[in-house]
Design a binder for these strands. Structure first.
Lengths: 136, 136
DNA sequence: CAGAATCCTCGGTGATACTG
DNA sequence: CAGTATCACCGAGGATTCTG
């Protein structure tokens, strides 16, 4: 087997690796990429939270979207739903261990955002200015 | 200042911290959460890539979305666009250093997905089965 | 080759009202 | 309190055609 062949193979598998990585990231994003998922996950991470607590704590969320997002997170095993058969009813949501680990991963993203937020804003301004000039 | 007051303050700032974290994650997601952003970023990470290369390499992407996503990534300073004034025209896209760091962060998410993909699938099956039973 | 322009579809989201 | 049900909107994304 020639050296060249080896290189090609290595390159192809590197390509496959990158594609796979992208695919996996998409998988995660499809689950927690919703408009409210992260916020709910974060709130549920610090312990049992009731439906109305979430509704009041998350600015701008509608009752409908809160319900839908909670259902999806529960379906994926990221939060647990506990119903207390009292009257009036009481329901508590808690992040699972899996979700807590995910949160730790998300912190890495936060760090990135922290480091580059100014640079990104500057890039946007520059791009917009540059592009506005061409609009004459 | 009472101990109780201190606790409340600490709790409030912890809350604020979590909210901020969620906000920052959203910031990142708003930039690379699009359907094709990650894949493009991944491809552009391994060096200069031409428009048509991307179009052929990314299954299912339309010419329109490729253009739009590239523009947004360029605007945020995540990729650089280099035009070679030849005929026919040649344009190369490359991930910036900032984007490469982001990619490293995304790998963390990949790891999480890897560890929990089976568990999530199982949770879904269980939830769906459970819920189908209630539909009678 | 690398787009720009146009039209259209569809699903995620919001607003509102009702209920066990 | 913790939802469900229904309607309506809007913008991300797709298909197609045209051009420097």
């Amino acid at each position: 087997m020639s050296q060249r062949n080896t290189d090609v193979t290595a390159q192809a598998s590197y390509q496959a690796l990158l594609d796979t990585e992208a695919c996996k990231v998409r998988e995660v994003l499809d689950r927690v990429g919703g408009k409210w998922s992260i916020q709910i996950l974060v709130d549920a991470t610090r312990g049992p939270v009731r439906f109305t607590e979430l509704e009041r704590g998350i600015e701008g969320i509608s009752r409908r979207m809160l319900t839908l997002t909670l259902r999806n997170l529960e379906r994926d095993g990221l939060i647990t739903r506990t119903v207390y058969p009292t009257v009036p009813p009481k329901v508590e949501y808690t992040a699972t261990e899996m979700a807590r680990e995910l949160y730790d991963s998300l912190v890495t993203l936060t760090t990135w955002a922290e480091r580059h937020r100014l640079r990104i804003a500057a890039a946007r301004d520059a791009y917009d200015k540059e592009h506005a000039a061409a609009r004459t």
